[in-house]
């Protein structure tokens, strides 16, 4: 796997407005900034509650960046694009890639 590949996991609990918004926002950012370099997994804890423990999920929705390490977590509906990108460390990497 490419070391520049982002492995993301979004934890949601049912189709709540917050979860729906988060998923929509995330997809938008990925398309914009990580085209072809990401893998997104959406986990609905209402279906798979046992998965919450593994990633220490408390807040919903939570976006977990598994790769690249270190693990980062972004909670909320991801409405603030800038903070999401900073949180995921996306801009910097993109910047390096363009040089």
């Amino acid at each position: 796997m490419d070391k520049n590949c982002w492995e993301l996991r979004l934890y949601i609990a049912g189709q709540t407005p917050k979860s729906v918004a988060a998923l929509a926002n995330l997809k938008k950012y990925c398309v914009q900034h990580l085209q072809g370099r990401y893998k997104l997994e959406v986990i609905d804890l209402l279906i798979n509650p046992q998965l919450a423990e593994g990633d220490q999920i408390l807040a919903i929705p939570t976006l977990v960046r598994k790769v690249p390490v270190p693990i980062r977590k972004i909670i909320g509906d991801l409405s603030n694009e800038e903070r999401v990108l900073v949180g995921l460390d996306i801009r910097a990497v993109v910047g390096i890639a363009t040089h």
Partner: peptide, 20 residues
């Protein structure tokens, strides 16, 4: 330090874990 906050959220995850 691991957590960044953007937008609205709740602690449903905690409920789910505890409930599970």
């Amino acid at each position: 330090s691991e957590i960044e906050e953007t937008g609205e959220y709740d602690l449903e995850g905690l409920f789910i874990r505890l409930g599970y």
